[in-house]
Design a protein around this nucleic acid. Structure first.
Ligand code: FES
Ligand code: FES
Lengths: 159, 159
DNA sequence: CAAATCAGGACCAAAGTGGTCCCCTTTTGG
DNA sequence: CCAAAAGGGGACCACTTTGGTCCTGATTTG
């Protein structure tokens, strides 16, 4: 179904929660994992696992110890959905032959699709790179952005 | 990794083989599953399973009995990658909340992402809808088409 | 030093995927 | 009319992946 895994779905949901909390408390403070679990309505162990992965991916900053917690490492407008997906689900790679390195599939000499797969993969990465966490946190935020640029979206008559 | 399953990968490879075979034999004839398995280098049982799914998805036509086999049900230019993926991997749906029907996730009232997910999902479907099997069967076929439309490739300096 | 809090990873149950095989129906042709 | 050639549908199982929990250790505060 070309579905991204549930951790990633949860992760984006958690991050939109953080954006809203940040908006509330103007001096941005650290939120602990239990606080975030409560705010998002998810179980603590799972939230904790996701938060750690987001730190490793550079999306969040953390501080240990008493009064420690998590906060966004950049502005929501500077975090793309693609970066979040990469942090929680690994790099986007539709097929073996679409990956970055020379890890082509075994029949790459016979079949002419490798370059095409890479192109398709790039297009999808571009799409996900163009969506920011800030937009994602607003209902219809992406659609609002698309209205300024609606010419490039649909081509009803085809190329 | 946002990877589509291997059956789908194989399926597209098989279809590109069929396109090339069709080009060779101008009176387009039916190819049997064993012939296709040989041409693609895959195991017969697996190829057979994939071919059946492609028939169900309307991509291929089949005829039973002696001298039976498979052929494309439309021109390669009229078959999109999206249709093939849907036939072999089900409808594209990045998250629960991105699906078509009212099958929203349980927290859809709390979280504002549903409309945004649907938008992102649509963008990806559009991308995959715009790639044809004909392009896919040519090395660099998609890139050649993109050259006529190169304004859409943004971020030249990126990556 | 004790409490709070994150870091890393082990662990297991559940679900999904990949691949093979079997039995049935349809079609051709002797 | 029957045998052989082909596809149709699905069962089946081994393997992998995912989802979720928990434990132990490191760091910070006071
Ligand atoms: S299937 Fe990998 S290069 Fe063609
Ligand atoms: S996570 Fe499903 S609507 Fe928000």
């Amino acid at each position: 179904m070309l579905r991204l895994n549930r951790q990633t779905d949860y992760g984006i949901m958690i991050l939109t929660c953080l954006v809203r909390e940040d908006d509330k408390a103007m001096p941005p403070r650290l939120l602990s994992a239990p606080e975030i679990a409560t705010a998002s309505g998810l179980a603590l162990p799972n939230v904790s696992k996701i938060l750690k992965a987001l730190v490793r991916g550079g999306i969040l900053q953390s501080r240990r110890g008493v009064q420690g917690g998590y906060q966004l490492s950049r502005l929501p407008a500077d975090i793309s959905i693609q970066q979040i997906i990469t942090a929680l689900d690994g790099p986007i790679s539709m097929t073996d032959c679409a990956g970055e390195g020379p890890e082509q599939c075994d029949v790459s000499s016979l079949c002419p699709m490798s370059a095409n797969w890479k192109y398709i993969n790039d297009k999808i990465v571009e799409t996900l790179e163009s969506i920011t966490l800030e937009q994602m946190a607003i209902p219809g935020g992406v659609l609002a952005a698309a209205n300024n640029d609606s010419d490039s979206t649909r081509n009803p008559e085809g190329e």
